[in-house]
């Protein structure tokens, strides 16, 4: 039984380590995306590119004035209905970055949010790996060091 547990913990730890391996990168490409802003949504709401790619966004607005602020890249562009705008940048940092409306456009404006995911999204992989390692580690700790000393359940109280 113990052995099965330790084997499973080992598998979890290996999965975590695998997540930490560097992924091989492909040749950089250029993405042309049109993002339309309307109350209270960007469409598309999620864009996925690879690290190093060039991204060219054509930004339009279909109802009122909106804007696009890209977290982490510090890019900001306002857009009027009927007048499209271009945003051009290189996706040089990996991770998930939210683009948010930057012009108060109505009630739900603060929650008008889209996502740019720059793969291989190392921060997310690292976070998952960290969680898995931490859980495996704490289960290992509980099985080795806690079980025996806590057998009596002495620390809890029930009248």
């Amino acid at each position: 039984m113990r052995m099965v547990l330790y084997a499973s913990l080992l598998v979890i730890a290996l999965v975590a380590l695998w997540l930490l391996l560097p992924t091989q990168s492909q040749a950089a490409t250029t993405h042309h995306v049109t993002i339309d802003a309307a109350q209270y949504e960007f469409s598309p709401g999620r864009i996925e590119v690879a690290q190093g790619d060039e991204v060219i966004i054509t930004l339009t607005a279909s109802d009122v004035v909106h804007g696009l602020y890209l977290d982490g890249y510090d890019i900001e562009q306002q857009v009027l209905p009927g007048v499209s705008q271009q945003i051009r940048f290189f996706a040089d940092q990996p991770g998930k970055f939210r683009y948010r409306c930057s012009v108060s456009c109505g009630a739900l404006h603060p929650f008008m949010i889209g996502e740019l995911v720059v793969s291989s999204n190392a921060p997310f992989r690292q976070a998952v790996a960290a969680v898995l390692l931490a859980v495996a580690g704490s289960i290992f700790y509980l099985s080795r060091f806690r079980s025996s000393q806590n057998e009596q359940g002495s620390e809890t109280t029930r009248a």
Binding site: L5, A134, S138, L142, S147, E155
Partner: peptide, 21 residues
């Protein structure tokens, strides 16, 4: 998460000391 797992283990140790895990 880790704190929660720890609480689970203590509650489990209260109810089944030998088989908390």
């Amino acid at each position: 998460l880790l704190f929660g797992i720890n609480v689970i283990h203590r509650v489990a140790a209260h109810h089944s000391p030998g088989r908390a895990l």
